[in-house]
Amino acid sequence: MQHTISVIVENDFGVLSRVATLFSGRGFNIESLSVAPTNEEGLSRMTIVTRGDAQILEQINKQLNKLIDVLKVLDFSDGSGIERELALIKVSAEDDARAEILRVVDIFRAKIIDVTPKSYTIEATGNPLKIDAILELLRPLGLKEVVRTGSVAIGRGAKGWNG
């Protein structure tokens, strides 16, 4: 089963490789990973999408918590979070396909951010399933390049991660 966890970390030297080493060393897998600084000085937030049963997830949580640079592990597996991902998609766009691509972009409320006579570059955001769906529709039209940020997630409701 797929799980999305957010990890609040000191943005110290080496923290990313500590997390990466933990996952590779213990045979946990990473489906996606994103990292960036937060609004709080000195803290970064990682969002990791991983796979495994409940016992593996428990170990991942505990092992992450054990890292000195990790302040908090937030587990959104129970649907308590909102997830978003951004994708940049380059598609070949010639003749009839151009109109079809524009229709898809419109339906998904995506944007065209670069145009040439032979291609469109599209920016799409949404939950990862939505990104999968737009890619599925664009694939037969000629995908040339896809960049996905990986998920980021935030808890629902009024509270921030530390209250």
Binding site: F13, G14, S17, R18, T21, G25, I68
Partner: peptide, 14 residues
């Protein structure tokens, strides 16, 4: 050496 010992130290500092 920090990289080499990362999996076998509790923590490390440069």
């Amino acid at each position: 050496i920090i990289g080499i010992t990362r999996p076998c130290t509790k923590h490390s500092f440069l």
